[in-house]
Design a protein around this nucleic acid. Structure first.
Lengths: 190, 190
DNA sequence: ACCTGAACACCGTTCAAGT
DNA sequence: ACCTGAACACCGTTCAAGT
C-alpha cells in the first residue's frame, strides 16, 4: 500500500499542470484534493520542482507508450503519421488541456532545471518516433526525416496552442488538414 | 508630463510579460523598476488584469505596425511572406523571448477575459495580414488564403515555442526552412 | 512511516492617510 | 493628482511536534 498518497499527489498535480501549467500546481489545493495538509506533500516530494519534474517525467513516459501503441496498431507508417496528431487532439477534447510540454515551454523561464530536463525528453520522444516512422515510410534520408520530424512536431504543438486559445477543436482539425494539404504532413486522412 | 509613470509601468510590465508571461507580472518588482511602491500602481491601473490587457493591447498594435512596415517595404507579396517569420525570430534574438500571444495562450486558464480579448486580437492581426498577402500573391481563393494563413501562423508560433525551449535560434531557422521545403510557406529565402 | 500546526517571506489587493 | 504604510488572504517552504 506504500506510495498511495504519493500516487494521489502525483495524479492531482498532473491534472493541475495540464490545466494551468507548472505555476498552476498549488500545494494547498492538491492537499485538499488528496486529503492531507499541504505540509504533508513535502514528505513525498522535496519541493515543487521535484513534484513538477515527476509529473513531467511520467507524462512523457505515458506519451511514449501511446506512440508505441500507435506504431503497433498501424503497420503502415503512413497510417501512423496520420494518427499522430490525435495525441494532441485528445488533450483538447479532454477539458481543453494543453500538452504539458507546450505549457512548460511557455513557462520555461520560471522552470527549475530538473523540470526542464523532462520537458525536453518529451519533445525528444516525439521527434524520434516521428523520424523513425517517416524513415519507415521511405520518405527520405535519415537527416531529412529527422528534420521533417522536428517540423511536424512544432507545427502540431503550435496548432494545439492556437486551437486551445479559441476553445475550438474544429480549428485544430482544420490546421492539421492544412498542414497535410500543404505537404508538411504526408497525405492520407486518419 | 502626465502619464509618465503610467508609461514606465507599462514598459516594465511588458518586459516582464515577454520573459515570464502574465503570471510573471509582479507588482512589487515593477514598482521597484519604476521607482514607486506597489500600491501606487493601482492609481494607474485598476487591477493586474487591466495592466495585463493594456500590455497585450499595445503589443498587438505594435505588431500590426511592424506588419504594415513589412508590407510597405516589400511590394512583392512573396517577399512579404518570406519576411514574416522574422517577427518571431526577433523575439528569440532579443533575450530569448516568446511572442506574448503564445505565452498567454498557454496561460489562458488563468487569464482574465479582458486580457484574452487582446491576445485574440494579436492572432487575428497576424492571420488577416497573412491572408491578404497570400491573396495578393495570387496563391488561391479567399477561403484558401485565410485557411493557409491560420496554418502558417500556428506553425510559426509553434516553431518559436519549441526553439525557445532549446534556447536555439538556429533551430527556429531550420524549422522555418522545413516549413518552406514542405510547401507550407511559399518558397523563397528572405 | 506519515502527518500536522504554526511560522516565514512573498504575492495581489484594499484603503485610509499623506503631500 | 499622485503616492504611501499597513493590513488582508493567499502562496511555497520549513520545522518542531505529534501518532
Amino acid at each position: 500500500m506504500t506510495g498511495n498518497a504519493r500516487e494521489a499527489i502525483l495524479a492531482a498535480a498532473k491534472t493541475a499542470a495540464q490545466h494551468r501549467g507548472y505555476n498552476g500546481i498549488n500545494f494547498r489545493s492538491i492537499g485538499e484534493a488528496v486529503g492531507v495538509k499541504n505540509a504533508s506533500i513535502y514528505y513525498h516530494f522535496a519541493s515543487k520542482a521535484e513534484l513538477g519534474a515527476a509529473v513531467a517525467e511520467r507524462y512523457w513516459q505515458d506519451t511514449a507508450k501511446v506512440l508505441q501503441g500507435i506504431g503497433e496498431a498501424n503497420p503502415d507508417p503512413l497510417r501512423c503519421l496520420a494518427a499522430y496528431p490525435s495525441i494532441f487532439r485528445t488533450s483538447l477534447e479532454d477539458g481543453n488541456r494543453l500538452c504539458l510540454s507546450s505549457f512548460m515551454a511557455a513557462e520555461y523561464e520560471d522552470l527549475p532545471e530538473e523540470v526542464m530536463v523532462e520537458v525536453k525528453a518529451f519533445a525528444q520522444t516525439n521527434v524520434e518516433w516521428l523520424a523513425q516512422v517517416l524513415a519507415a515510410a521511405g520518405l527520405g534520408s535519415e537527416a531529412f526525416c529527422e528534420r521533417r520530424a522536428r517540423a511536424i512536431y512544432s507545427a502540431v504543438a503550435g496548432a494545439q496552442l492556437i486551437a486551445r486559445t479559441r476553445r475550438d477543436i474544429a480549428l485544430f482539425d482544420e490546421l492539421i488538414d492544412s498542414y497535410r494539404d500543404a505537404g508538411l504532413l504526408p497525405g492520407m486522412q486518419p
